Simulated scan of single mutants.
Amino acid sequence: MTLAIPGFDHLRLPGADKVELAAAVGGQGSPLVLLHGFPQTHLMWRHVAERLADEHTVICPDLRGYGASDKPAATGPEVYSKRTMAADIVALAAALGHERFALVGHDRGALVAFRAGLDHPETLTHLGILDVVPTLDMWNVLHGIPAAVGYHLFLMAQPPGLPETMITNSADTFFGSFLDAWSSNPSAIPEPVRSAYLQASTAAVPSIVADYRASASIDVTHDQADQDAGSQLAMPVTVVQQDWGARLGYDAASIWRAWAPDLDHRLTGAGHYMAEEAPDEITEAIRDLLLR
């Protein structure tokens, strides 16, 4: 099994603040950027990217702090804020000659995509979100025993030192537990890909923790400021997610509609790793989004 997206070039491209991002780039047509989630790399898009490459120039970066991208030291919360990570993606696309592009993100990448939509509305033509709610809303809906599914959010929100030590001492077990618990079809992440995810995540513990820590601090501040200002996503938005609202007692579609007036909200029977478990479904959702 190849651990690359067939037919794609693998490049290093400039992000923000002199950070370089690794990216797989392939296909032809209007630009589409796909952002991965946790604890993954751009490889999570391997099936979807191939399906879309006949219609679009598909760009699959590793987020800063993940995969083969640079992992700057977290000298302050802004280094891994979603605002900074969104600026990375805008800079990367511009380096490829794309001043406007469609953006789809999963999990952590979806939070980056959400922030890009608010901060760079003139740049994004369409926005796709897989299996999250915005950071501010996430903290508001996590309560009671069902919220134990998000224990890692609270662990990595702790001050520097303890989370990094605990995770480093059991990195494969920690990261592997999410690949097991959040998948409804483990065979969708075959062993070579799983090993690649675990190896990449184990090498990136400090930056992954910093990413999550930012979501318990500066990212909330940014979301709250936009909510207070009445900011909304100006572009067509498609959200595909599991029915977390039914499990945790909230209306996910209503949460997203408050941010995205032009919303297509879809529920899926696939697990969290839906781009790997149900690539045809996710490809169709992205194609439908790009036709709006």
Rank of each mutant, 00 (worst) to 15 (best):
W244H: 01
E122W: 02
M1S: 15
L162V: 15
A147V: 14
H98G: 04
D251N: 06
F154G: 07
A285N: 11
G144L: 01
L118I: 06
V58E: 06
A203D: 15
L103D: 04
D211T: 04
L263M: 10
S254K: 13
R213T: 04
L118G: 04
M44T: 04
L13E: 12
D251E: 07
D228Q: 13
P206C: 03
H106S: 07
V112D: 02
D131Y: 05
A157G: 15
D180K: 01
W45S: 04
Q199D: 13
D88N: 11
G128Y: 05
S170D: 15
A24Q: 01
E281I: 10
L155R: 00
V58F: 07
D262Y: 05
T221R: 04
L130V: 12
R108Y: 10
L179W: 01
A214G: 06
T283Y: 08
E55K: 12
Q242F: 01
V149H: 15
S69M: 08
Q232V: 13
R51K: 14
K18T: 14
L103V: 01
A171Y: 02
Q232A: 12
H36L: 06
H47Q: 05
A188P: 03
L124P: 05
T84G: 06
N169S: 15
A188I: 08
A181I: 08
T57D: 10
S254N: 13
A110T: 07
S81V: 07
D223T: 09
S215M: 12
G230D: 00
L32F: 00
D288V: 14
A16N: 11
G67D: 01
S201V: 08
R64P: 06
V205G: 02
V104D: 07
L34R: 01
Y250Q: 00
Y212A: 01
T57Y: 11
A246E: 08
G109F: 07
P186G: 05
L43Q: 14
D228S: 10
I167Y: 01
V220P: 05
I59K: 08
L153H: 06
R247F: 12
